[in-house]
Every structure is written in structure tokens, then in C-alpha cells.
Nucleic acid binder design. Structure first.
Lengths: 112, 112
DNA sequence: TAGCATCTACTACGAAACGTCGTAGATAGG
DNA sequence: CCTATCTACGACGTTTCGTAGTAGATGCTA
């Protein structure tokens, strides 16, 4: 359902619907409803374009993922423990990416 | 609802109910249902104790949090990007804990 | 200007999850 | 045998989600 995020720019309902037509047979109004609900949840934003609305993701997929990770961490009780367990679950590659992200953060703090 | 996790040992429905009585006025069967549903979702385990069941968390709160973080990361598309955003959201203290967790992971890999 | 196409707004409906609880029946202790 | 204690199972209202239809506004076109 959220594969609409793949799209780079703001799309109208029609465009999303057509783009989905290959993969799944959905009624036009179904797409409309979904987009509308996402907008109500602030996951998409919309702007007028003639009589139609043009929808765009409020934040990239990665930002959503990061938010969810934060939320999970917030409900953890002992954050240290949760983080230890988290890095314990993560693949080697992901651990490397994490380290990278952290040094990037350092660099930023130096500069900014 | 999941504040039942605060308890250290396996508890019977009655014990959980009594423990909750101070905070919230819940029917005995409500507690039972909840515990039972949690068990069905594998979030609690239960063992017989006389005619009663004794429930215990299948995993500590922190493990659940870590699982959720993983899930979020898995639905991210570009993991690097998601991780960068995540560490960007996190507090300084949490970043430090993360670094710590990562070095701990290193040490483990050396040893184990 | 009448009519058709296009779009939105609103409503709906079934399924699943959740919080809440009741009833029925098994079991154990006095 | 009666009563208290537990469980199993069902139930009901609410919310979320996927799906879709209908009504009404708007705009192009003949």
C-alpha cells in the first residue's frame, strides 16, 4: 500500500492509479481513499492542481523508518539494554553502516 | 496494558489482577483475556501451577523494542539512509550508548 | 448551453485487532 | 456436597485497513 512512496514527485490520484494498474486491479476511488487517509495521518501532503489534488510523501520512507525506530526505543525502559540487543540483532553490514552513521554525526557536530 | 512487564517473575491472573487493582478497575476476566491473547501472540509464555496458569513475559521489554527497531529498519528501503536519520534523531546520550553497544559487539566477536 | 468526463467528498462494509466483560463448566477444599 | 477459584469461549463496541460505490461539483467540448 505504501509502495506509492517509490514515486519521486507529487502525483495525482489518477497518476497513482495508472501506475498501480499494472500490478494490482484497484478501483480509482480506492486509491483516492487511501491517499486521503494517509493525508489525514500526515503521512502525505497534498496541494491543489486544477480541480485535482496532488499528493506527495510527507517524509521519505527512511525518515518513517527512523521515526519508528525512535518510537520503539522510547518504549524500551532501559535504553542501553535495548540498544545492545538491537546491535546484537543487526547484520554485520548494518553494524558497519551504523558506525558510519555515527562518525558522520561526529563530523557534523564538529562542523555545525 | 503491557505494564505487566514490570513484574519480575511468572504471575497468575489473580496476582496480575490484584497488582493492577490500585491503578485500574479491571474485571478479572479482562486480565485473563489479555494475558491469553498475549500468549497466543507469543509475547507471554505460561506454565501450569495447580489449576491456574502462571504467565511470564516471553522476552524482556528491551528485546521487544529491539525487535521493533529491526522491523522498522527492514521496511526502510535504503538502510544506510534510515540509520543516518535514526542516529540524527537520537539524543547525545543515546548516541553514546549506541557507540558503547557497538564496541561491546566488537569485543564479543573477538572473543566469541 | 447541454452533456459527458473527471475529480472530490462522503458513506459503507467486511475483516482484524483491542479493550472490556460475562457465562458456563471444571476443579479443589472444607 | 457446596462453594470458591480458574479456565475456556463467546461477545460487543471501537478503531484501523482495504476495498469500493454514489452523489455532486467542475470543466471541456460540440
Amino acid at each position: 500500500m505504501e509502495q506509492l512512496w517509490a514515486a519521486p514527485a507529487a502525483l495525482t490520484v489518477r497518476e497513482v492509479h495508472e501506475q498501480l494498474a499494472g500490478t494490482r486491479e484497484l478501483a480509482y476511488t480506492t486509491v483516492m481513499t487511501v491517499l486521503d487517509r494517509l493525508a489525514k495521518k500526515k503521512l502525505t501532503e497534498r496541494e491543489r492542481d486544477g480541480k485535482a489534488w496532488r499528493y506527495r510523501a510527507a517524509a521519505p520512507r527512511e525518515e518513517l523508518a527512523a521515526d519508528l525506530m525512535r518510537d520503539a526505543l522510547d518504549r524500551a525502559g532501559d535504553r542501553r539494554e535495548a540498544l545492545v540487543r538491537f546491535v546484537g540483532q543487526v547484520s554485520d553490514e548494518e553494524a558497519a553502516l551504523l558506525r558510519e552513521a555515527l562518525s558522520q554525526l561526529d563530523a557534523q557536530e564538529q562542523t555545525g
